[in-house]
Structure formats: structure tokens, C-alpha cells
Design a binder for these strands. Structure first.
Length: 217
DNA sequence: CTCCCGATAT
DNA sequence: ATATCAGGAG
């Protein structure tokens, strides 16, 4: 397991590699961000942006999603995976926003997680990006990178990964850390073919060491 | 744990 | 062909 100091070093290297790491989901208000993040489950943000480019022209407010049939909404997001559940969740979510929140998006993680299709990760992303609340959303990239580097244990749950990161990273750096780890995971420490040979963190990375040994044999 | 699920990279 | 993609609900 990496020490706090080693983790600090990892984050500094990631900052150097990706100085402009930030959210890539296109949106112009909290409501659009919630929809975009909900759609992004098990799907690349690139594809989400392609779909929301048209979607957000057609649907501006929660009412707009409720004033069409479920089938029409499904067709509008069809190119994204899991589109049937996502369409249903969007409609439930919009109904709750209108019923309980005056059509606005709630600002706390606890309230956000009550919304249909919004779990821990989505709530953290929205709280962090839309409302500047310190949060570390553990998605597939953050989890993979944390486990490969040895920031946490392989068996840790996403909640344990989140707790470890919150414990070892200063609160005012949670949001940037989240984005740096995502960029590091998405473009360098990729799921399928991680670029270990050119990795500046190879020396302290347990998974990288293992992979390099395998590559030689 | 399983299911939802199309697009994309390898 | 298959793994993977800013996961969440039952």
C-alpha cells in the first residue's frame, strides 16, 4: 500500500500529465448535468455528448421530458446503452423535481441520491461540478487506477476506495483529484492496454511492475 | 449477484 | 469476437 506521501507524489505527477483535467460532459446548468451524468452510466462521455447535443435542444425543463411518450424519449437516447431504464429514470427524476423541488436540482448528495437513477457516483459528480461541494466520485477509472497503483486494496468496494481517498487527500483537492485520476485512467492507465512502459509512476506501481515482468517473458 | 444494452476499441 | 465504457436498481 502506498503511503500518504507516495499518493501525494502520484497526484502531482498526474497534475503534470493532465494540467487541464476537468469534466467533459457538455452541459449548461445543473439540470442538464444530472441528465448527462445519468446517461453516462456504462457509456463513454463522448457518446453522451453526441446524444445530448440534440437532446438538450428539444428538452429544456423537467416538464419537457414528461410531455412526450416514454417511447419518444427512448428513441431520442437510443444510441446510448441501457436506454430503456435510463428513459424511465429520467421521467421519474423529472417528476420528483417538479413535485418536491420546485423543478430545481437539489444541492446535497443525500437529496441527489434519492433521485431515480442517481447513485453515489452520480450524486458526487453533480455535487462537485454543479455545486462546488468537495467530493470524490469513484467511477470505473478512479477505482481501477487506485487499485493498480496500490492506493487501496484490490478487494475494496467503491465506498472503501472513496473513504481512503478522502482520508489521504486534502479536502480542498478532492474535486481536482477526482478529475486528474479520471484523465490518468482514461488516457494513460487504460483498462485494456495501460501504457506502463512510458509511465512515470511505474517504479511505485505494483500492477505496473507485474505487467512489465510479464511482458519480458 | 444479475440485469439493463448500444457504440467503440482492440 | 470480446472487453469496456464518468453505474444503478432489484
Amino acid at each position: 500500500m502506498l503511503t500518504k506521501k507516495q499518493i501525494r507524489y502520484c497526484l502531482d505527477v498526474m497534475e503534470e500529465m493532465f494540467p487541464n483535467a476537468e469534466g467533459e460532459l457538455v452541459h449548461s446548468n445543473p439540470f442538464e448535468l444530472v441528465i448527462a451524468v445519468l446517461l453516462s452510466a456504462q457509456c463513454t462521455d463522448k457518446l453522451v455528448n453526441k446524444v445530448t447535443a440534440n437532446l438538450f435542444k428539444k428538452y429544456k425543463k423537467p416538464e419537457d421530458y414528461l410531455n412526450v411518450t416514454l417511447e419518444e424519449l427512448e428513441q431520442d437516447i437510443k444510441s446510448i446503452g441501457l436506454y430503456r431504464t435510463k428513459a424511465k429514470n429520467i421521467r421519474k427524476l423529472c417528476q420528483v423535481l417538479l413535485d418536491n423541488y420546485n423543478g430545481e436540482v437539489p444541492q446535497t448528495k443525500e437529496e441527489l441520491m434519492k433521485l431515480a437513477g442517481v447513485g453515489r457516483k452520480t450524486a458526487n459528480v453533480v455535487a462537485s461540478i454543479a455545486f462546488n461541494e468537495p467530493a470524490i466520485a469513484v467511477d470505473t477509472h478512479v477505482e481501477r487506477v487506485s487499485k493498480r497503483l496500490g492506493i487501496c486494496r484490490w478487494k475494496d468496494s467503491v465506498i472503501q476506495v472513496e473513504e481512503t481517498l478522502m482520508r489521504k487527500v486534502p479536502r480542498d483537492e478532492w474535486s481536482v483529484t477526482h478529475h486528474r485520476m479520471i484523465f490518468f485512467g482514461r488516457y494513460h492507465c487504460k483498462a485494456r492496454n495501460p501504457n506502463c512502459p512510458e509511465c512515470p509512476l511505474l517504479e511505485l506501481c505494483r500492477e505496473g511492475q507485474k505487467r512489465m515482468k510479464k511482458a519480458i517473458m
